[in-house]
Design a protein around this nucleic acid. Structure first.
Lengths: 320, 320
DNA sequence: TTGTAAGCGTTATCAG
DNA sequence: CTGATAACGCTTACAA
């Protein structure tokens, strides 16, 4: 691949001048030499080395989005929001999936730091008692030293501006709605143990007067398991509020498989309003995932972020 | 952030030696100086500049996966496969979503090339008559010049080893299955116009004896629209084979909303066997998405790929 | 308006 | 076993 010095030689112009015309510098260059350089670049098929450029400017045009699980539509929606605004400005957004937990998150964070990413957005929540929390905090600080702006889209255990919605209120609102329907015995299927988000959603359920909570998770399979636990009881609850849509759907499918009438016999709800919720007609609460992604990207482009809490809203469909 | 020269000064050792101990070089270094360097690195919080390293070694540890749409579970599954094997070897996999079509794809490809990506995986299919096809081919060639290994997971219009499954056969098999059920009037909902994958699936339907095909797409909404087109006809077909799961689900939901009994009145099937298909009990054909991702990653790690066609299989559920 | 040259942080080649 | 030093490809004062 042709480099600046190739162009320079070919066009009979200094490297500096080539650099100036080839990267839209404000520095004046005569039309004559400009076109000569352009022509040489064209002929030789010049492509800049983003690596070299980033090395000297001390910042690349990469925005990293660290998500909990790339197949989870919750994260996909966020990533899409980031991408939408980043692409306009020519930034490359790379989504990194940390399926293996905090360790993987730390690994990705370090890589992003090492590549001088312009921005790093943490899409998922932090974990209580996270063994690598301290290391994460250090790496975040280092990334900042290198000019990265880091933003969190859920509660984390390091210093960072946050763009979020109120998980506790979301859970509270939907629980209240379900109670308002006249359901007395309501079971809550918890999120993954340890996640701050899980704790917040459980707290919302509790504050709304809920008392019966069982273990769960954020995956479809977790919902299936929760359904089985419920099916094993003497009597089914009137309603079950799952900590998120995926689990709610697993629960819903398993319950119906077992011949349970939803919503006739048991009402089922989720939180997040991801695409699959739409597919199955799940009652849930809409949260501004795409908008969070957009704002996160804007924050890194503007190199400055402010804490915000975005609104959520009940979305009633056919499972209640 | 501390750099090699900082460590060098702090430890009273040459930069070269520091480099040797800090990057696991085979070059011998005495235990004494090694530990001195390590200590200095520890104290100063050294983190290597992947940028500088990649610049001199002429290759970064980045694998880019260019997908059609990050919220599409088809691509998410592939990305996950890539990530799974890449992570083990310390490679960073970045998934780039080309929601805006070929142009966006080209943009991402160039970025990846400019960052000297070690590998570039094209997850989606090429388009007939693509206006940027030539530019894509050039950029692919350039990326190769810079040492990248590029792999395609669907038919493309440039030279590249492919890891795929047989789209034509998949569509043929499910159509044949549906006919075997006794359905006579079968409608096929096509994929997005222009995509090679769409053409292949349509060809499979046709080869299996299907004749009635209507416009569609790969998104949920496309399925909804197709359902409405069908609903507007005098009589509904006995079965509809959609070009993929997303569209099949949109179709299914819309049909049921309209009071149509599926599978009683109309049978519905998809292709891909993505997660949502599981949720709604869709009859479809399983394709090795995750495995394709894994193999693509292996190919870039081994710097060499061979063409393969992986098997698919019918997955019968409750919509037929 | 153009060119020279000093880095950016590493790795790698050669000598000691 | 250790250390200079030349790249890698680019940007950017500073000169001319």
């Amino acid at each position: 691949m042709a480099s600046l010095s190739d162009i320079s030689r070919h066009a009979g112009v200094s490297i500096a001048t080539c650099s100036r015309v080839l990267n839209g510098s404000a520095h004046p260059v005569s039309e004559a030499t400009r076109s000569r350089v352009l022509k040489a670049a064209e002929e030789l098929g010049y492509a800049p080395s983003a690596l070299a450029r980033a090395l000297v400017t001390r910042s690349s045009r990469i925005i990293g989005v660290i998500v909990g699980d790339i197949v989870d539509p919750y994260f996909a929606e966020i990533a899409r929001g980031v991408e939408a605004v980043a692409a306009e400005l020519g930034y490359l957004t790379m989504v990194c999936s940390a399926e293996l937990g905090s360790e993987a998150e730390l690994g990705h964070l370090r890589q992003l730091r090492d590549y001088h990413a312009a921005g790093i957005v943490f899409a998922g929540s932090g974990r209580a008692g996270d063994p690598v929390a301290a290391e994460l905090a250090v790496a975040v600080a280092d990334a900042r030293t290198r000019g990265a702006v880091v933003v969190a889209l859920a509660q984390r255990d390091f210093e960072a501006p946050t763009i979020l919605f109120d998980n506790e209120a979301a859970a509270h609102d939907i629980t209240t709605y379900v109670r308002g329907l006249g359901h007395e015995r309501i079971t809550f299927v918890e999120g993954p143990a340890g996640l701050h988000t899980s704790a917040q959603r459980l707290a919302g359920f509790t504050r709304a007067g809920g008392t019966d909570a069982i273990a769960g998770g954020f995956a479809y399979e977790d919902g299936v398991r929760a359904a089985e636990a419920l099916l094993a009881r003497d009597t089914l609850p009137d309603a079950v509020v799952a900590a998120n849509d995926e689990a709610a759907i697993g629960l819903l499918v398993r319950l119906r498989d077992a011949g349970v009438d939803v919503p006739g016999q048991v009402a089922v709800t989720g939180i997040d309003d991801t695409r699959p919720a739409h597919f199955v007609g799940l009652t849930t609460v809409t949260v501004p995932l795409h908008e969070m992604g957009r704002r996160a990207a804007q924050a890194v482009l503007e190199q400055h972020a402010e804490d915000v809490v975005l609104p959520h809203a009940l979305r009633v469909r056919s499972t209640t």
